[in-house]
């Protein structure tokens, strides 16, 4: 089922909103959901290109999963109880939060990509001249639901990232206390945390011992961390 026009006299929706077959099999709920499409479109316009409502959950306790795809093709999701659709104010608030979360995730992905572009030559310059490859990882956070983001693998030349990764850079979260994102670098020797500051537009490492220090990520610091990380 695809949304056409809003019940409020608006034109064709800019966001393509569909329902999965399970939801369509419940015509009453499907109609209730479709009535709210205009609200969804208003809330997520600009942050999403496609949205799909899915019906999930246990019998008697159904859940509605809203899966959205942003203009760059990345997907995120959020879970709603059907009863939430009855409260327009509450639903508007939740969809607004979801929209903010989607925009935040999009910004977070860019920050991660910028970090990976910066450290890639540093990785390739490590001892043994390893190779670098990327993969897509699924992250689940409370505010955004599930979303996809790149992770970076450092592997031996000719190696396989699944079998013998030397070091992995994994985006852990965009919502971090006091920070605007966290990427873990993990190797056989240890695991280190890199934190992103949106205000500074920079990455920092906080050593796991006192006194507390926020060290800007430089090539020299990166090499020190990477060597400790790789020292298995």
């Amino acid at each position: 089922m695809q949304a056409g026009c809003s019940p409020h006299g608006r034109g064709v929706l800019a966001v393509q909103i569909t329902q999965d077959s399970t939801l369509q099999a419940d015509p009453v709920l499907a109609a209730t959901v479709a009535e709210k499409n205009w609200l969804l479109e208003t809330a997520i316009d600009g942050s999403a290109a496609e949205a799909t409502w899915e019906l999930n959950g246990e019998p008697g306790r159904p859940n509605l999963i809203l899966r959205v795809r942003d203009p760059e093709g990345y997907r995120s999701s959020a879970t709603f109880a059907p009863v939430e659709l009855k409260n327009e104010t509450g639903l508007t608030s939740r969809l607004g939060d979801l929209n903010e979360a989607l925009l935040r995730v999009a910004e977070w992905r860019k920050a991660v990509d910028t970090l990976f572009a910066r450290i890639r030559p540093w990785c390739e310059a490590l001892s043994g001249s390893p190779a670098v490859c990327k993969n897509i990882n699924l992250v689940r956070e409370e505010r955004s639901g599930e979303y996809l983001v790149r992770e970076l693998f450092v592997i031996p030349i000719g190696g396989d990232r699944l079998i013998d990764p030397l070091m992995v850079f994994t985006p852990v979260a965009a919502w971090v206390v006091g920070w605007d994102g966290r990427v873990d670098m993990t190797g056989p020797g240890d695991r280190y945390i890199l934190n992103y500051s949106r205000a500074a537009g920079a990455w920092y490492h906080v050593p796991n011992y006192l006194p507390y220090r926020q060290l800007p990520l430089t090539e020299t610091l990166f090499r020190e961390l990477a060597e400790a990380c790789l020292d298995g």
Partner: peptide
Amino acid sequence: PPVNTNPAD
């Protein structure tokens, strides 16, 4: 988790 943190922070 509602938000992420680590022991040092």
